[in-house]
Design a protein around this nucleic acid. Sequence first.
DNA 1: ATATCTGCAAATCGTTTGCATGGAA
DNA 2: TTCCATGCAAACGATTTGCAGATAT
Lengths: 141, 141
Amino acid sequence: MLSAIELATKLRENGCKVTPQRLAIYDMLSKTTEHPTAETIYNKLKPLYPAMSLATVYKSVEVLEKIDAIQVLNTGEDSFRYDANVAQHFHIKCMHCGRVMDVPCQDLKPLVENLEKKTQFTITGQQVYFYGICPDCQKQH
Amino acid sequence: MLSAIELATKLRENGCKVTPQRLAIYDMLSKTTEHPTAETIYNKLKPLYPAMSLATVYKSVEVLEKIDAIQVLNTGEDSFRYDANVAQHFHIKCMHCGRVMDVPCQDLKPLVENLEKKTQFTITGQQVYFYGICPDCQKQH
DNA sequence: ATATCTGCAAATCGTTTGCATGGAA
DNA sequence: TTCCATGCAAACGATTTGCAGATAT
């Protein structure tokens, strides 16, 4: 998670301009754990930035991903989700209520190095998704 | 991987009819390691089944997934990929040429059980994707 | 000053749906 | 005979694009 100043610096370092929209989107993402879609980000920010368009959300998250400030999740739904936590972690999705939660994980370096040897790939990233039923939904049968 | 007879049995057991299209799609998937998209499946089968429509491919893979004959991959592209190998394994994608390859993995049961304890989820499945550059693309710089 | 970004609307494209016909049980 | 499946075309919805005006540097 970056402060607004750190994000601004990172944007400038990458030749991107610092705009209120980009700051607002990153700020919103860094304050939630719900891994929102572009639509959700758009709706959350609409009261604060009534003029902001959905296209700007898409363009902004693309930039934020490119400078490694956020990551994009594809949990198999019809839309992507965005996550300001770029530290190594897994995600677990409840197939009943649809929530996507973070799961801390141990260092994957040994596994990745082992796979690099086995596959001869240079590995630059990974995504790990688990699927199941969350405790809340289990209680409701 | 199932034989045509085993697949037919599994379809009937699940109240689904056995059609040439479903058999052909499963057969094609079980003979490739390239994890094709619906479009690719459609184009591969077009010479054999000129009347087959893309919509039928989509409807068929949905059925095949529902009866657990195949799995659906979301590697973060614009379209889904399909895999007749439903045994536990990882996928690794080359960000340069786009190929998606299988990676065998050790039994995940200990990890999954550990996560179930930690998250209180009932875990029913998982998807693990690695991203990087494949040996062939590394050679071409 | 000028290159980049925003907001709008239209375009794109993977996927889904409705419906009449055809085929499996 | 009775559903269910197919094929076609139209619909859908998430994302992208083009462009004119606005803004960051």
